[in-house]
Design a protein around this nucleic acid. Structure first.
Lengths: 201, 201, 201, 201
DNA sequence: ACATAATCGAGACGGTACGTCCCGTCTTGTT
DNA sequence: AACAAGACGGGACGTACCGTCTCGATTATGT
């Protein structure tokens, strides 16, 4: 946890911190990030203004932007992909479709950008992002792949981390560096192409 | 072209602009970017100081940071991967090894970060980056794949853009989101895994 | 008043402006003016540096140099000539001696220069200067002259404004355009010469 | 002389300097000074632009602003007061009237301001000004006073420098620090008042 | 009920960088 | 060689935010 006050402790005297202000701050930060700013563009002054809050109220809680961004990201309920279907192929298609559709939403894209670009400069932010946005998805994906290996839909000797990188990386590459408009059935085509190498021979 | 003065033709009156200053500016900008700054951290004042140049001399040429960064990126001779070997598999491995090794160099990483993260806010920068850093490599890769399709090493019906996305995306994903240390033979393993699906059946 | 914030009344929200900073700014401005600069040479940046203050702190109070100079001049307590002696002649001599001795001090000379030279370009500065530096002295002088007219030391029909101009103008002219070194008893000589025309016949 | 090229010398090779340019520069400088600028506000760039001349052409002739201003002032034909009348009183009145009427012209006022205010910072300018603008007038005035002393209109023991300071200083003071509108017969009134002390008893 | 005390919004503080303007110097090609 | 044009390194301008620091006002707890 990055907050500075221990939560579960003795109720100290004085006016308690306003939860409302806190939420407004987080929300304002996400709003601004969602408008395309990087961590550096994200200005405390702008957050304070948008949240209708004094700058002190922010600095009292987070000593730097990183910590605030970390908490803001954490508050983003990872709207994990829904439950799975029947065949591995269909699950993979569904998964990639979710990933693709998310990449349309501004907020998601910006979070993604932050995670990718600020990993050197703000490693804690990147780490936190990985934890909340990458890991759960990877676990989901990994479960699907292992189910396939178990039931014979996929090769038993499949290199799972590699397979996940192939699927996720391909989708990211296509959506990032697309030359033209993306095909409507992009997810299906990726899965079908990739599965050619994943299926038992 | 982003420079403000037309290059060809008329030899305008007055002292001509100094090429030396121009190079110093570009070099200083790349230096600073290479130290880990994003486009936003990149300060004109710092560039001017490092280049030993007045701010005017910068603003005379580029009216904003974006344009300067675009030209700076363009000046980075993409040290395109060297010539190819004999088999498609070895060429792909060699190509991915170059990509992987580049990702270690700070300057390249930063350029990469800029390209990826600033694509929303600074679309022209991203576009220029694509042109100088992505496209030539993709053409190289595409040539290798088509050679393979022609000589029977690869399936004749291979979806080339998809295949390129698989190779490049996988490498990027692995180097970006590596859980642990990267295997020494990463490039080989990616190629071998992927080729299983690319070879004729 | 030239300050931008209303002084009286309402105790606005937020941290109040620092009187210390204000004094430091005024003092720094006077220092620099005293070193021989005109209003134009007076740089806000230099004032800020010397006062140990941010430029904002200056601009928050005065929107331009003129206003600042006006307030700086106003802060110069005109160390009005001390009380008067017995005879009109001695009072006039004492008065002119003070004027002459002041003209040696750098600060006074510079203030004087500003007042005289900038009257066209910076009329408000000149006006303010007149109010704080000229008027009180003129009132003092006028009182002495009227005392003399009342008690018979001076002609009863003396043109007082004219008499004041004669005394002050002569002193200024002599100190400004002196051909050689000023006589030690300059004030006495002026008074004695001038009084020849001022005394009753 | 402040010009950098010896005038009476050998005709050196190359294109001769343009007299037209020179006149245009002087004229432009006087124009700008006449608009109310001090020596410091007077910018070479502005002069060059107004004169339709390259900055080099100015710097080739004068190495600094002072020198240029000196020559510009020198070019002002001191339109010395016209010949004298019959009585000393009438001559003095006529003289002061000229002085007063000149003080209305912008150019004269500005020259005056420069001379008065820049004497500390630009002593050569002040000296030159004294030579061309003060001295000839003072000599005129001094001649009138001495004529009066010779023919009995004035006291034989009159302190001439003091008398001149009284006349000139009074006029300057009145025109500079006038409280209200100047009386139409200002010159006459000054002379009449002052002469009360100058005449033989 | 009332002092104590941590919080709140507001906004001033010393700074840094911005992009503009002009300085006085220095190159150009032309006259 | 002198000319106009204009680029050069530099310095100050006034603005916008930075992150820190007071302010008076508010809101809870612990007598």
């Amino acid at each position: 946890m990055t907050m500075q006050q221990t939560d579960g402790a003795v109720r100290t005297a004085g006016r308690p911190r306003s939860e409302k202000a806190e939420k407004a701050i987080i929300e304002a930060a996400l709003d601004i990030l969602g408008e395309g700013s990087g961590v550096s563009e994200l200005s405390i002054e702008a957050i304070a203004a948008r949240a209708g809050v004094g700058k002190t109220t922010i600095y009292r809680r987070w000593s730097n932007k990183e910590d605030l961004v970390v908490d803001a990201l954490a508050s983003l309920k990872p709207p994990i992909a829904p439950l799975k279907g029947v065949s591995v192929r269909d699950d993979l298609v569904a998964y990639l479709q979710v990933v693709q559709s998310e990449s349309v939403h501004v907020r998601t894209r910006c979070i993604m950008n932050i995670a990718m670009s600020q990993s050197d400069k703000h490693p804690r932010v990147a780490e936190r992002f990985h934890e909340i946005a990458i890991k759960p998805r990877q676990e989901l994906l990994s479960a699907v792949l292992e189910r396939g290996m178990a039931n014979g839909e996929l090769r038993a000797d499949l290199d799972v981390p590699m397979a996940m990188a192939i699927l996720s990386g391909t989708m990211m590459w296509r959506t990032k560096w697309a030359d033209g408009p993306l095909p409507a059935d992009l997810a299906e085509r990726i899965v079908d192409e990739v599965l050619l190498g994943f299926r038992p021979r």
